[in-house]
Design a protein around this nucleic acid. Sequence first.
DNA 1: CAGTGGTCTAGACCACTTT
DNA 2: AAGTGGTCTAGACCACTGA
Lengths: 253, 253
Amino acid sequence: MISDKPESCPDATNPAVAPVGFRPLYRQVKDAFIKRMADGLWPPGFLLPSESVLAGEIGVSQGTVRKALDELAAENLVVRQQGKGTFVAQHDEKRILFQFFKLVRDDGIPRFPESQVLAAEVAEASAAECAGLDIEPGARVARVRRVRFIDGDPLIVETLSLPDAIFPGITEGEVPNSLYAYYSSRYGVTIAFAREKLKAIVLSPEDAAILGRPAGHPALQVSRVALALDGRAVEWRVSLCLTDDAHYSASMR
Amino acid sequence: MISDKPESCPDATNPAVAPVGFRPLYRQVKDAFIKRMADGLWPPGFLLPSESVLAGEIGVSQGTVRKALDELAAENLVVRQQGKGTFVAQHDEKRILFQFFKLVRDDGIPRFPESQVLAAEVAEASAAECAGLDIEPGARVARVRRVRFIDGDPLIVETLSLPDAIFPGITEGEVPNSLYAYYSSRYGVTIAFAREKLKAIVLSPEDAAILGRPAGHPALQVSRVALALDGRAVEWRVSLCLTDDAHYSASMR
DNA sequence: CAGTGGTCTAGACCACTTT
DNA sequence: AAGTGGTCTAGACCACTGA
């Protein structure tokens, strides 16, 4: 049971809500589901109990569970399959390609990039990293610098910054190509949301050399902050992308 | 009434649907609503009849109308206001700013740009325009070239291409700053969706002069195709944006 | 106060998948 | 055939707006 009196109660279980008052039941249910995912009770790929079973457990109607799952599905946190069930979303290659990787070659065919790590270290966070990751000055971060290839061509050089407190030891082993799946499997951290800021810049001599272009060549700088299920900023990355033969794809409605 | 037998009928009114079979009632209702908007029966800003009235008119339950409106609201085609009613979405400044204008100054405060038209003409469509607008070779297009200012600084120089068949005479009068509102009020064309491709480029001497930067300065090239309610491509624009003090903002979940 | 959208419930039946 | 999500209905009540 989430609350005894569904009607008009200002949600005693969540005090941060009083000001506006009123938190719909289905939203409380949704938050409870997110918490189960964040806590690892419902890991990626997990088959949820059926809507009617969940409704019985929680003590609400099946329609209310459904509305909670509707929103989770709209946010790509669960995936529904008619006849089979509802699954916690996984960061498989296909999802990453559709959801997070917006750079596509001009032919329009999406391809998954390969990666080669150039350097990895743990150091004190810079001011920019503190701001981007919302951590206190002096905290330590892991930095990974890598090149990414599409069809064998180096198209992206990027630097990732990860709070050491959240990803301890991540630079020690091999850093895999599919980072978001790795965050999930090794650290139980699920990336749920990301914000990006794009600028046009010109390449420094070092970056240009890595990408096989002359210094001063234009490139798309993509700065991403990725947020976990609980809303914490857990990854900051700055990617420099060649767009001579590729573009960043966006759409809006 | 949309169909006599809601259950399992493959929708005799819409033959293009048979292959997958099954078109839910609420989706037929939604399509009917979109058609009313596209036909000008429900113009932007129009207050829709209440859900129960619509349900009675169409002969479905109020919940089915609600689900249709849910989807339209999710696509920003209608706006709901509790206690007041449901309105057809309008291209007012605020909506444009949130929905279509992604370039913001680095301080993060969104501002609406002003525009100054540099040139306007009607000519035969180029190959690129034919491809972008999905029109046949030889068709005529209106071209508008303009500069856009934020806080008085020229930040964007762009060229718009519009099918003459859809916007006849648009270059003859004054071309206003808020184009999407103008498309709607003068031509009854509502922009519902847009796709953008972004590249980093360097400015030509001409564009650089307009934006007050040296030739070869980097800029963000945004190519947008805008689609009307019925899915037709009705506008193609290529914008060159200075990102020294601004960025293109994107997010994904 | 009446009218609107928003939430919640309960139950029926459909479409799809698997056994 | 059984179990899942998907659709549709009907009715009750809540939250918000404006006269």
